Amino acid sequence: MASDTSKIPAQQQQWPGTTSSLDPAPDHGETSWTGRHRLTGKRALITGGDSGIGRAVAITFAKEGADVAISFLPEEQADAEETRKQVEATGRTCVLLPADLRTEAAALEVVTGAVDGLGGLDVLVSNAAYQMSHQGLEEFPGEQIVRTFETNVFATFWLAKAAAPHLAPGSSILVTTSIQAFEPSEPLLDYAATKAALNNLTVNLAAELGEKGIRVNAVAPGPIWTPLIPSTMPESKVEGFGADTPLGRAGHPVEVASAFVYLASDEASYVSGTVLGVTGGRPVF
């Protein structure tokens, strides 16, 4: 049974954070997810697949029959190795692709590595993101604004551009956006703006790639318990994280991964250009 996330205690980590230090432990579907062969034979590239939502997507995809490649920052190698261990325990392939996706060349290299390692590509999950909170506009460093947009928006554009030629009809591109695109909070000014941009990009990519039979959708998580939270927010904001949602708690990564499984599956064959909220009850519109 997943640990209780209704009363998360104050805690802090150095960015980018590690899964093993989280209290309570997050659920990525390691034991809780039961596969139903919904992605058998598919090959997926998942960015930010070392921890959090990305790890849960990798594990659930593998349990559904997909082989995966994950990208991650080099300093996140230990978490990436744990993801690979969990994926390989299901009998599926997991290709590790360390990279900083802030350049078009890096994005192209990761896509090429995934295609070579998996023998093709059917699903791109652009999930890697950067955020760092500040209490006032004057506190946001210029270099942070650039990094946030490069990591969240530019990389998604470059990944989609590089992946599209490899995607056949029936393939899909999935993007992680956020409740912040709809309910932005001031300490995450730049991050929220990038997530709103990704919603727009998702709709435009769906229109652009639809004639090729490629579906493009986004998932907008609410407060999800991942290493990103204690490594980018003050302790006072981490304590009780997610308790202000209608469901009264933060979500586990596996609870977001279920949306990605659906959108990547043939069950969603007529779903494109949409943003699916997994927010604990907060509105997404």
Results as ranks from 00 to 15, higher is better:
271 V>H: 13
225 W>F: 11
189 L>N: 09
96 L>P: 01
245 T>C: 09
86 Q>C: 04
181 A>C: 12
89 A>P: 12
63 K>H: 12
245 T>E: 08
274 T>A: 02
248 G>Q: 10
194 T>L: 03
237 K>D: 15
204 N>Y: 05
195 K>E: 05
158 W>F: 06
196 A>F: 14
167 L>Q: 01
189 L>D: 08
206 A>P: 09
87 V>S: 01
218 A>S: 15
172 S>Q: 04
76 E>Y: 02
58 A>G: 14
266 D>V: 11
266 D>M: 10
235 E>A: 13
240 G>W: 04
103 T>K: 06
59 I>S: 02
273 G>K: 00
200 N>R: 12
101 L>H: 07
79 D>G: 02
93 T>R: 15
236 S>G: 05
131 Q>R: 03
273 G>Q: 02
206 A>K: 00
27 D>W: 07
85 K>P: 06
39 L>P: 10
249 R>G: 05
159 L>S: 10
158 W>T: 00
205 L>E: 01
131 Q>K: 10
200 N>P: 05
264 A>M: 07
26 P>V: 02
178 S>L: 08
163 A>F: 04
73 L>G: 06
213 G>K: 05
82 E>R: 03
7 K>N: 14
180 Q>E: 13
227 P>V: 11
267 E>Q: 11
263 L>A: 07
178 S>Y: 13
210 G>C: 07
175 V>M: 07
186 E>W: 15
234 P>Y: 09
171 S>E: 06
7 K>H: 15
157 F>P: 01
84 R>L: 00
190 D>G: 03
99 A>P: 12
136 G>D: 07
271 V>Y: 13
183 E>I: 15
159 L>P: 10
64 E>P: 12
31 T>I: 05
150 E>V: 06
278 V>K: 06
49 G>S: 12
70 I>W: 07
248 G>N: 11
162 A>I: 05
245 T>D: 03
49 G>Y: 06
162 A>F: 08
141 P>W: 11
168 A>Q: 12
4 D>A: 05
128 A>K: 05
135 Q>I: 00
117 G>Y: 10
61 F>C: 10
121 L>Y: 10
30 E>W: 13
48 G>W: 10
143 E>R: 15
4 D>V: 10
6 S>N: 00
119 G>T: 12
64 E>L: 07
13 Q>G: 06
255 E>I: 13
264 A>S: 09
14 Q>K: 09
119 G>E: 12
239 E>L: 04
110 V>L: 05
73 L>S: 08
135 Q>S: 11
18 T>I: 14
170 G>C: 09
102 R>V: 14
161 K>F: 08
146 V>S: 08
11 Q>S: 09
128 A>D: 03
261 V>L: 08
186 E>F: 15
258 S>E: 15
163 A>M: 02
265 S>Y: 14
102 R>G: 12
103 T>P: 10
197 A>N: 01
179 I>C: 02
61 F>R: 09
160 A>D: 00
95 V>C: 03
101 L>C: 11
26 P>C: 04
39 L>M: 08
257 A>K: 13
99 A>T: 13
108 L>D: 08
133 S>T: 14
7 K>W: 03
71 S>L: 07
125 V>D: 02
149 F>G: 02
50 D>S: 14
260 F>G: 04
8 I>Q: 00
44 A>R: 01
56 A>E: 09
284 V>T: 11
